[in-house]
Amino acid sequence: MRYMDDSVVMKRMTKRITFNKVWKTLFFLATTFALVMLAILLYRIVTQGIDYLNFDFLTNFASRFADKAGIKAALVGSLWLMGVVAPVSIILGVGTAIYLEEYAKKNRLNDFIRMNISNLAGVPSIVFGLLGLTIFVRMMELGKSILAAGFTMSLLILPVIIVAAQEAIRAVPSEQREASYGMGATKWQTILRVVLPAAIPGILTGSILALSRAIGETAPLVVIGIPVILQFLPDNLLSQFTALPMQIYDWAKRPQEAFQYVAAAGILVLMTVLLLMNSIAIFIRNKFQKRY
């Protein structure tokens, strides 16, 4: 038996160890890069916007005076918008996912549908804006209303919700379904009482993350032509309204420097709403997630 030549091994070892270290550092840097960028962004926005962020900012309408400008109309408008987007997109999305996972047979047509839902998820948001403008605003004559914008945004996030719900439903073990059938339950009873309860955490997490994308999306609203200058709150689904990202964009374009800070304050409000929604998603995931 030949003994190992320590010196040869060590010679190769150092090389391998350094090689390993280099990659480890690279991957670590890649991870921190995103974090550092986020930190810089947050620092910049907070230092710029914090002075303008107070209670008045939340309760005032927009104004030509930077220190009187408020975000009320946009904040309320965005909440109304979510009031349309959430039910429409979740009901349609979860419905589609249930059909595709539980009812649809595995054939060419259904494969085609599945593939195209994934394709739809990759369509740029501005294209959905054009679709919304043509169909909801002009053909269905909904005008530049909450309903028209809400439908457009729902279409935008629908694929994301469908895919998330499909994954969640697929993760429910088939033994559970079989047990349910074995007890004499119908398909609908099984879906309602076994599959959906088990899939809820995944569905909700996906849906909330999709909704937070919708609340920050600007391009479709710009294309639809949502107004930014208004001094009233919407009072029904066909009202004119404005939304947070539109208002922020409008402020950022102003010549007066003070409005750049007002815009930063607006971004803080938008980010707070986003963080709230995301933490609800994380909370639901941690609280109800079960592994089989």
């Binding site: 927009a62 030509r64 949502i226 107004p227 200058i229 208004l230 001094q231």
Partner: peptide, 21 residues
Amino acid sequence: EAVVEEYAGAQPDVKVSVGVS
């Protein structure tokens, strides 16, 4: 925007909305 702001004081029930396209 300035006019709309002033007008909201004069006629609070008229809903003026202006886009910037």
